[in-house]
Amino acid sequence: MPCYRIVFLLAIFLFGAQVSAQTPRAALAHFKEGNKKLERGDLAGAIEELSRAIEISSRLDVDRSGTHKAMANGFAISADNASGVTVIDPFTAYAYTSRGLARYGQGDWEGAILDWDRAITINPGFAVAYLDRGSARYAKGDKAGSLSDWNRALSIDPRMPSAYSNRGALRQQMGETDQALIDLNKAITLDDRSARTYCNRGFVWIDKRDWQRAISDFESAIRLEPRMAWAYQGRGTARMDLNELEAAIVDFNRVLELDPELVNAYMNRGLALLLQSKDEEARKDFARALAIRPGIKDELATRIKLAEELRSSKPQRHLTGPD
């Protein structure tokens, strides 16, 4: 999924003294440290700390511990009242959600989904847990499951820009370009500082063959996040379809500086070189693309044949592969 990036939910809690091993403050201490490690990219350390927070919290009796009640109340989620659900312990739901993020970062989709399942069981109105579980389901190839989760997240919190952005990107992949555009426009209305949303919308404009709007969105993404490889890939794709081959090659070069394994950049740069009659350079790019992803052999052969037919004269038709 292009430009696709999961939303990290990080909370910071301020408290002072040394805490004992089995108290609410101990659970908070492990939670805080786990989120610090998550933010630093120490995923194994984050899982260890968050697992300890969950273990301690699960042993505490919310009804008998006034301190634990206060701790739970500090995690009250604004969507709860609107959804009419009973939340057993918001703190533990947050801890499961953070651990799910760490597991997602390790590529453990199943483990992440189990943690978000637990968070949702505790708090069925927790929109962020649906948002994140949808991302893990998408990573597993379960598009129907991810769409269901993002729909649910938006039914709980209709002002969640990341859910609109994710759903819009998925709808673009499913060929539902008009619905995708509605979602991505809404995401940008709610948050006009998201590079990935502009990038996602740029690919919708490519599907609609509106190259200038696509370029505008990719340039917005690049201004916000100059190291986003997919934004350069998208802009290069649009420039290539405008027959601006030199500018497209510059963009594909930049893509490969940022992400040397991005197959479509090799394929598209090779096609641009082929259209310039730089056959030897083009063959090197095609060979590299096939080495990374052998399954594109037939698709690549079709595009090469079309490029060879067009390179001497006619206006260029759609040769590129943005996704």
Rank of each mutant, 00 (worst) to 15 (best):
H318P: 08
P124K: 13
Q173N: 10
L43W: 11
R223W: 04
K143I: 15
T197D: 02
D89K: 08
P158C: 01
A169Y: 00
R64Q: 12
R167Y: 05
A102Q: 07
G111A: 08
K305C: 02
S57V: 14
T189L: 10
R239T: 05
W230F: 14
K208Y: 01
L245G: 10
A169L: 15
E308I: 14
S162F: 12
R201Y: 11
I296S: 00
W230V: 13
T197Q: 08
A163E: 02
Y198C: 04
R193I: 14
I292Q: 06
N123Y: 00
M174V: 04
P260R: 12
K69E: 05
E48F: 06
W211M: 15
Q172R: 15
D217A: 00
A301W: 09
M160K: 09
L271E: 02
R99N: 12
E246V: 14
R193T: 15
D115P: 08
Y232C: 08
R5A: 15
E246Y: 05
K140S: 08
D117N: 12
A187D: 01
L300K: 02
E246F: 02
A291G: 11
T67G: 13
S146K: 07
K305M: 06
L242Q: 15
I292G: 03
G66F: 08
K69M: 11
M228N: 12
E299A: 09
N151V: 05
R25D: 15
M174C: 08
D132L: 15
T177M: 08
F252K: 04
M174H: 06
G34I: 00
S146N: 04
Q276E: 13
G145Q: 04
I296F: 05
R152E: 06
Y138L: 15
N200A: 05
P322E: 05
G16K: 09
E280Y: 13
A272K: 04
A112Y: 12
D298K: 14
V250H: 14
P322R: 10
A93W: 00
A231G: 15
T302R: 12
G125A: 12
F8S: 13
D42C: 06
N81S: 05
T237F: 01
D142A: 03
D132F: 08
